[in-house]
Amino acid sequence: MYSLKVSNLCKQYTETYLFQDISFELHPGEVMAISGWNGSGKSTLLRVIAGLVRPTTGRVEMFFKGESIAREFRRRFVGMVAPAFSLYEELTALENLEFFCKVRGIGYDRESCLVIMEQIGLSESAGTLCRNYSSGMKQRLKLAQALLHKPPLLLLDEPGCNLDSKGMEVVENIIADQRRSGMSIIASNERREVDYGDRVINLSK
C-alpha cells in the first residue's frame, strides 16, 4: 500500500560529500539497514528521509496506493527515533505520550497509551517525570513516541542505544511488528541491529 522511493540523494557540506547518490525503494514488510563509520552520514540520511534536513540534490518521495504524498502530510506517515532527540523532561511519560497524541491530531486515549507503555516495559513508571528516567528508559519512551500514530515508515537511528537485553527484545518486537505491515530503516553499527535488515547500505567508502 505504502512505498518509499529515494532517488540520487546527495548531501554536501563545504566541498565534501557526506553521502552521494543514494537510491533505493522500500515496500511494506521490508527492513533496511544503514551502516557506516562515524561521520559517514547515517543520521543525516535518516533526517533527510524524515524531512528534517533538505538534501543538496535528489528526492525523497512517499507513495500511498501509487500516489505521491505531499511534503506537509508526510509527518503523519513517519515515526522516528534518534539519539539527538529528546522528549519533554518536565512532563511524565504518560503526559508526553498524551501531548504527542494531541499534537498529531489522534485523539488521546489513556487506555491505548497504557498498552503501549506496557509493551515498552514502562507501565510501572508511567507517572514519573522524564527528568528522573534513566537513559535506557528515555530510549524506550522515545520508541513509544515514534509508534503512537502507527507510522507506515519507521526510522530508527541506533534503536538499541542505552538499552539492556530486555530493551533489545522490545526493539526486536517492534521491528517484527513493523515488518508485518510497514517499512523500517535502521541506522546502526551494532552487528545485531544491522542484521535485522533484509538489505544493508554501507555508507563508508
Binding site: 563545504t14 566541498e15 565534501t16 561521520g39 559517514s40 543520521s43 543525516t44 539527538a84
Partner: peptide, 17 residues
C-alpha cells in the same frame, strides 16, 4: 567556493553521529 559558515555546520553534524 563554499560559503562561509558551512564549516560550523559540518562540525555540528559530526557531533550528532
Amino acid at each position: 567556493e563554499p560559503e562561509f559558515g558551512a564549516r560550523e555546520n559540518m562540525d555540528r553534524v559530526g557531533e550528532e553521529q
